[in-house]
Amino acid sequence: MARLNVTRVLFSREFVDRTLVCRRNTQTVGQDGRAVDTPADTPFSGVVTNDQGDIMKRMPEGSYVTGSIMVHSKFPLIESDDTHDADLVNWKGRWYTVFNVSDWTTYGAGFTAAICTPTNLSGG
């Protein structure tokens, strides 16, 4: 088992980003049988790093840029569950969908790392 607690380092002012926002959509079923989202925005702190960076995908129809970021935080981001859609994270004015959350409590209590992909793909 690891003995290094990285939360102290990651949440130092040199690394932490205090401008992150999590949009969590609670889903219910409407009268028409379709999902109805009720969003709630929550500011949180974390460290954002490149995961895959920007990747241009070329196809016969055109090209687009995708990629992913990794958010290290003690805030409990979720991919989805029975009553919630995947969380959205706003970083530097762009929205990202939480794609995968890893439990890193070995390196500090409540510490997670979430891979997030852009909600809007940009043309290349």
Rank of each mutant, 00 (worst) to 15 (best):
G110R: 08
Q27V: 14
Q27A: 08
S68I: 02
N25E: 14
S80K: 12
R13I: 06
V101W: 05
H84G: 03
P39E: 01
D37I: 02
G67Y: 01
L121M: 07
R18W: 06
V9H: 10
W104C: 13
S45F: 05
N100E: 12
V71Y: 06
V9S: 12
A113Y: 02
E14N: 15
F111M: 05
P39I: 07
N100P: 04
V65R: 15
D37Q: 03
W104A: 15
R23C: 01
F11R: 14
D17Y: 01
V16I: 13
C116R: 04
I55S: 04
P76T: 00
T42W: 03
A40D: 10
A109D: 11
T97K: 15
S102G: 08
D17R: 14
F75S: 13
R13V: 01
K57F: 04
R58P: 04
D54S: 12
R94G: 06
D87Q: 10
Q27K: 06
S102P: 07
G46D: 04
H84T: 05
V6R: 14
D81E: 00
P43C: 10
S63R: 09
I69K: 15
G93Y: 01
V6D: 07
L121C: 06
V36W: 04
A114Y: 12
T105K: 14
F11V: 08
C22M: 05
D41K: 11
M70V: 15
R24Q: 12
D85T: 03
T28V: 07
V29Y: 08
Y96Q: 12
T49Q: 07
P39A: 03
T28Q: 03
R24E: 01
Y107D: 02
D82R: 13
R13W: 06
T38W: 01
R34N: 15
I115A: 13
E14F: 12
